[in-house]
């Protein structure tokens, strides 16, 4: 999920000091509850005129995809995780931070009646929107659960594909998120993520600015640190795309980019002479 241009300039939360994990969660929750109500990621005074459809097109959704459930597109992504890899008919797909359900509904088309899609989100307003959208458009193979993406209410080894769009940067403990993702994926399961990573370190003030935290910047990690975490969780990682222009278009030129990666849960390679 991402801020729109000008968000940096209009801090609405008085805050100073380093944020604790629970404070970060509350800041994110408060922000996205407001977005769910207002139907836009933009702050009241930013003056930007790009709508969710324009943003969707810029970050890689086709016109056909944007027309699927248009009201579920709040313009909060930083890429199109569904375009990164194959989602097959019959797959069970899990969306981390499902918002109003836009990516879930696209995945639902791909998995068909024999598959299913689970969206996990912690914000009531988003879950209500997602459920209304599912009902309106008759998606019987999608369900939504209120939960944390670092403490998933999902069984071990039960998911074929995990997708996540610009959400993991918001989580205080990204290693916990990737470890839990690894846990729920089946053997040979795959994960397609679009997320914001930093190209240069932020100041302590920036990292603790609630608007930057909620806007996918304050909690973002340097790319190397981010990739190290994904690997530490057990995944084999493949960088699929880097979008550096997104900084100029949507993030006031801050030193960041949108990273698209594939993370694969593969069996441990057999090492000669070692038995386990």
């Amino acid at each position: 999920m991402k801020p729109l241009t000008g968000m940096v300039l209009c801090s609405r939360y008085a805050y100073s000091g380093i944020m604790k994990d629970e404070e970060i969660i509350q800041v994110v929750k408060k922000h996205y509850s407001k977005v769910a109500t207002n139907g836009t990621g933009c702050c009241d005074s930013c003056g930007c005129d790009a709508g969710p459809e324009d943003i969707g097109r810029m970050i890689g959704y086709s016109d056909e995809e944007l027309a699927n459930v248009p009201e579920a597109n709040l313009g909060l992504g930083c890429g199109n995780p569904l375009a990164l890899g194959n989602i097959m008919e019959g797959d069970t797909v899990l969306d981390l931070g499902s918002g109003a359900g836009f990516d879930c509904f696209l995945a639902a088309r791909k998995v068909g009646r024999s598959g299913k899609v689970i969206g996990v989100d912690m914000t009531d307003g988003m879950l209500e929107l997602a459920r209304k959208n599912a009902e309106k458009h008759g998606f019987g193979n999608v369900e939504f659960r209120k939960g944390y993406i670092h403490q998933l209410p999902v069984d071990d080894n039960s998911i074929d594909v995990i997708i996540s769009n610009c959400v993991i940067n918001l989580a205080p403990d990204k290693l916990a998120v990737y470890r839990d993702a690894y846990r729920v994926l089946k053997k040979n399961g795959r994960m397609y993520v679009s997320d914001i990573v930093l190209l240069a370190e932020l100041s302590e003030e920036q990292k603790s600015d609630p608007d930057l935290v909620a806007g996918c910047v304050g909690g973002a990690l340097l790319m190397d640190d981010y990739l190290a975490i994904v690997k530490k969780a057990g995944f084999r990682v493949e960088i699929l795309h880097e979008d550096r222009d997104i900084s100029k278009i949507q993030y006031d030129g801050l030193p960041l980019m949108s990273l698209k990666l594939g993370a694969y849960k593969l069996p441990a390679p057999k090492v000669a002479g070692v038995t386990s």
Partner: peptide
Amino acid sequence: MHLNTVSHGMPDNMK
């Protein structure tokens, strides 16, 4: 836990 079956639906016991 949305299990609507309008057009992309599943059998009732799917819930």
